[in-house]
């Protein structure tokens, strides 16, 4: 039994090394001083100083940040009420509604992307960032709705009912009780929507307009010409930023987890 256990744990460790190998490679190669990211020449922090020197990369980054922001706003604005309602107002509508959510999450992104491209062209929606934000939001609304639903189910509705009994009108109970209780889920959903949008390739590839390429699309198109170290350096900085973000979100979620007994 002890040997089995050791073999399993060694396997576990090996797989985690496998999962992190490419990330380690990117971190090492971001310190590659050569002109081509791919061919190792010498250690240098040169590219970290040159991150914002490439105007095409920075404008793509700006497009990605704006898109991720608007997409996350849409995802939270529509996903949070949907998630709360799914948990609290179950009925015959719940089954088909959740089925639609799973279709949205499960359908190959490619198919959804083509449909959106066709439809946005037809209805004459040609603003690049609007197209990208809407395109990314469809998936993320579903993600936010599911996260919020899980939290709302865990909490029960007694506190809102108590507020109602004490004379609070529904909107006030929602604003003062429901929203603060939902905050960890809302925040996690916001963070996830932002990340998914920031990393998206396929939807962006189809719905983008000339001049509004996102950062991943910029990387993809410059791969053919040969990537330079600035892209890797930027990726490492983004990884650090997401470490901080995830750490923050995790602390927040675990802190509110302790307060869970409050809702019963």
């Amino acid at each position: 039994m002890e040997i089995n256990r050791l073999v399993l744990l060694a396997w576990l460790a090996a797989v985690f090394v496998f999962l992190f190998l490419p990330i380690v490679v990117i971190i090492i190669y971001s310190f590659n001083g050569g002109r081509n990211l791919y061919v190792w020449t010498e250690w240098s922090t040169h590219w970290y100083g040159a991150i914002f020197d490439n105007p095409r990369a920075t404008s793509a980054l700006a497009v990605s940040l704006q898109t991720a922001f608007f997409n996350a706003v849409i995802a939270v604005a529509l996903g949070v009420p949907a998630g709360i309602t799914l948990a609290r107002r179950q009925g015959r509508w719940t089954g088909p509604y959740i089925a639609l959510i799973f279709v949205i999450l499960g359908i190959p992104e490619l198919v959804s992307a083509i449909g959106q491209m066709i439809w946005m062209d037809r209805i004459g929606l040609f603003d690049g960032i609007t197209r990208l934000s809407i395109g990314h939001s469809l998936f993320n609304i579903a993600v936010v709705a599911l996260i919020v639903r899980a939290r709302a189910e865990g909490l029960g509705e007694q506190l809102e009912q108590a507020a109602g009994d004490l004379g609070a009108p529904p909107w006030r109970a929602f604003k003062d009780i429901t929203l603060p209780l939902m905050f960890p889920a809302v925040f996690a959903g916001l963070l996830l929507s932002f990340t998914f949008s920031f990393d998206d390739v396929i939807i962006s590839l189809f719905v983008q307009r000339p001049g509004t390429s996102t950062f991943p699309i910029y990387i993809l198109s410059s791969m053919k010409a040969g990537l330079k170290g600035d892209v890797a350096a930027l990726a490492v900085l983004m990884l650090l930023a997401s470490f901080v973000g995830v750490g923050f979100a995790a602390t927040l979620l675990s802190r509110s987890g302790k307060g869970k007994t409050l809702g019963g």
């Binding site: 985690f16 999962l19 990387i219 983004m238």
Partner: peptide, 20 residues
């Protein structure tokens, strides 16, 4: 740790395999 790789660019992780 398992979901951490998803916080780095999917493209660059895949590109890293070209280097490897």
């Amino acid at each position: 740790l398992l979901i951490l790789p998803y916080w780095t660019s999917f493209l660059l992780r895949t590109f890293a395999w070209r280097i490897i």
